[in-house]
Design a protein around this nucleic acid. Sequence first.
RNA 1: GCCCCUGUGGCGGAACUGGUAGACGCGCCGGAUUCAAAAUCCGGUUCUUUCGGGAGUGUCGGUUCGAGUCCGACCGGGGGCACCA
Length: 863
Amino acid sequence: MLLKIEKETMSRYNAKATEAKWQKIWTDAKIFKTDSTSTKPKYYVLEMFPYPSGRIHMGHVRNYTLGDVVARFRRANGYEVLHPMGWDAFGMPAENAAMERKVHPADWTYDNIANMRDQLKQVGLAIDWDREFATCDADYYGKEQQIFIDFYNAGLIYRKESWVNWDPVDNTVLANEQVIDGRGWRSGAVVERRKLSQWFLKITDFAEELLEGLGTLDRWPDKVRLMQENWIGRSEGLKFTFEISETGESLPVYTTRPDTLFGASFCAIAADHPLAAKLAEDNADLKAFIEDCRKTGTTEEAIEKAEKKGFDTGLTVKHPCDPDWKLPIYVANFVLMDYGTGAIFACPAGDQRDLDFARKYDLPVLPVVLPEGEDPASYTIGDEAYTGPGKMFNSRFLDGMETMAAKAEMIDRAEKEGWGERTINYRLRDWGVSRQRYWGTPIPFVHCDDCGVVPVPAEELPVKLPEDVSFDRPGNPLEHHPTWKHTKCPTCGGKAVRETDTMDTFVDSSWYFLRFVTPESDQPFDGDVVDQWLPVNQYIGGVEHAILHLLYARFFTRALNHVGRTQVKEPFEGLFTQGMVNHVTYKDAEGQWVFPEMVRSREDGSFFRSDNGLDVTEGRIEKMSKSKKNVVDPDDIIDQYGADTARWFVLSDSPPERDLLWTEAGIEGAWRFTQRVFRMVDAPSAAVAAVGAAVPESLSDSALALRKATHKTIVDITADIEALHFNKAVARLYEYANAIGAKVEGDGAAEVMREALETLVMLVSPMMPHLAEELWQKLGHKTLVAETPWPKAIVALTVDNTVKMAVQVNGKVRDTIEVAKDMPKDEVEKIALASEKVDRSLDGLTVRKVIVVPGRIVNIVAN
RNA sequence: GCCCCUGUGGCGGAACUGGUAGACGCGCCGGAUUCAAAAUCCGGUUCUUUCGGGAGUGUCGGUUCGAGUCCGACCGGGGGCACCA
């Protein structure tokens, strides 16, 4: 009995103690410290840095494990790897905590960082922690202010009065993208519209470059490139000017469908259009209509959306091709001031919105594009506009032309006759970065009555946030602070007031990957060193950042290039977007969400709560979220199974770009494998360590089979990791473990087994680094796995000289044959036809044709 | 409404450029070990069958000697969006 217990403990792998041990050894030896000036080939792997919310979640574990496998794999393959970590530390939750719990945002943030750093370190990541910083460090945001002033001096920053989305709860301005269904994306408050003076970054100057650059990003997911392309929204069309018949004033419009100009039926302007505002001055009804449009916001839900509304101004414009043709001007709720010129001409036959509008207000609908196969005499438009291609008709000089040709012709004519021009238009708008908040980078400017807006001189940076702030009343604490904003004008020395806006936190994350390269630089970064390390070779993060963060970071890099700080143009060479981590949801009999750890199962398969015994039912599988309580805490998992098992599980089963389903059974399976690998290597380790590394020439069949498996596995795993197909790598390692478990005996068995076990340890090491170190040591090595080169396959052992081929009769597999790899087709055919099973299937049929695809298949066609 | 992606056993998923569908794992079933259990090990596991086979990758059709893979239409699931002129 005693003996048995002892055996049990000895053969069990104690993950917790072992992991702590190796983490300390790695840290003490500083083996993950990156030498920026190394002559080795460089590899920069980066995961999107976390927001310090307080605790890590499984999504973090997945994200950082993916990156860590890449980092360790590249290190083993001879690269100098840069794999840093930092904190996206500014943002509203810290201010919310300050308001709710009377804790200073800085204290809250740095406490959270300390917690999460400890948690992340337990995952065993190969990170150079010496480069760590938080964006809320004055050192970091001071450098950001420097960049901001650079951009200002380069004309990339301007201020303008503009309509903004005002969140009345957070007392802040929201970007359009941050307004979801008319509500603030964080507070959920119904958004109002206000006019404020705002700071803007001229991202639109780079619209064309950013669009073109997408073409070079061949290691980005197509999906993300497409989303950015749509976001930039380049279109080519005609910009021309209507003359208002009654006043002679001009009204510029933009259209992508100049071909349909003869189908025009009315003209519509946005509610925010200056002309609308002017007309509303002495028209109460119009004023009310405009107010109404504003209330609905720019992105309202479907039902509200569907309702096209307009207001007839009573004015008309002259058709540019026919001064006698007058079109009424409407103010319409579906025309956007931000896009094009804020005014359109409408051709109801060719645009669904225009058609809906025309039907509602009983305006003419004249078809001008004839779809193929339709008769011009009888063709009419019902409730559906025709937006496809076709031949022009009812269109005077365009009649008979194809749509594309008609477009070009109309633009050419407009340019020749001088009433319009070919114009490229973008949907992309400039980036408003002003936030009326405390916990962000102060915009480094002062307002002087005499000198206007003046940048803070470089030697006075950083403009630090004051520490003594109060969150007792709503609004921006910087505005309320008794002294902070009062300063002297850098130009004239007179009284001046600091800008109290802080920057959008997307600014912070737009250049952190550059700071990581030279975090000690007194400049934002050392351009020469950055140019050697960038672009980031592999960037990994959530697809939710597909547009904003990634587009802003691309813009920032180009802007930094523009101001001469770097040669780099595209920051991220390879992008990988991981899927979410999901879990089933549980609800008890009272309808309350239940944490998975509180769910117990009965023998009949039903569930109950461990605390109060209430019945529990399994619900949908959803993204892990605190609100639905379908979360598992990485700390608990690591405590129970160890980091390696957790890492192994998040890498297995699902392809990393897809959602991962977290299950108890899955983590148990991973844990079993961890134990199995440990036993497989541990049990024979002493004997194996004594065996020489040299494998003899002559091997028994079973030894040769294992050796071949070893070298094939090296090739496969290497390819899988390079392609980030970690789930496949995991599957192959299971297979390889099975192969090692098979009986090996005879000549060379011991040597081949040693090679196999060492290879297994190495191949597993990027995924389960602690276990690998422990086993490596047990196999008699004094060096670290983390500093051991990746195994090299002997190519000769990875090719077989025979091959199994399927033999089909009329496309159905009847038999398999094993033939020499280079056997001529006619011999293969002979062997296939000699098969008894094939012969049986051919009974009564005549062979018409035999197709032999060498190394793959034989198909016998018969009837 | 528009755009994109996706659909394979009970489940997660394999299947290179069209060439043996279901690798590997989970679950389940059986066996070994154990007083018993846990753990571990071995075997089986798409469905169906008269044990010869037959059917099968969302549905229907097409191309091909051969289709999960290519083409067309439809159905389901997921994601994105901006009423973008």
